[in-house]
């Protein structure tokens, strides 16, 4: 398991050329994709390998730390 903190990606759509390289390199499970054929930007990535940022030919992917809200299951376990 990755010890990295989950991140949420942000794509600078102005520079994105819809090349798909970020999805091609992404080790996430199937479906971690946005409607614009990039990696998902609407949910946290718990792998946070950031390879998508490295492969991007126009370097238009950035991230912020995902703010984790405890799930009900986690709270019940306390």
């Amino acid at each position: 398991m990755s010890k990295k903190k989950p991140v949420i990606f942000d794509i600078g759509w102005n520079a994105c050329i819809n090349c798909g390289a970020c999805v091609a390199i992404c080790p996430q499970e199937a479906g971690f994709i946005s409607p614009f054929d990039t990696i998902a930007v609407d949910r946290p990535c718990d792998i946070a390998c950031l390879l998508c940022e490295d492969i991007c030919p126009v370097r238009t992917i950035t991230h912020r730390e995902a703010v984790m809200v405890p799930t009900a299951a986690a709270l019940l376990a306390l």
Partner: peptide, 22 residues
């Protein structure tokens, strides 16, 4: 290259960062 179908079947489709050219 962005194939999801292989992932559905659980095939090893992961590509190494040293082997994908941007």
């Amino acid at each position: 290259l962005m194939s999801q179908v292989g992932k559905w079947a659980g095939l090893q489709t992961h590509i190494r960062i040293t082997e994908l050219a941007g």
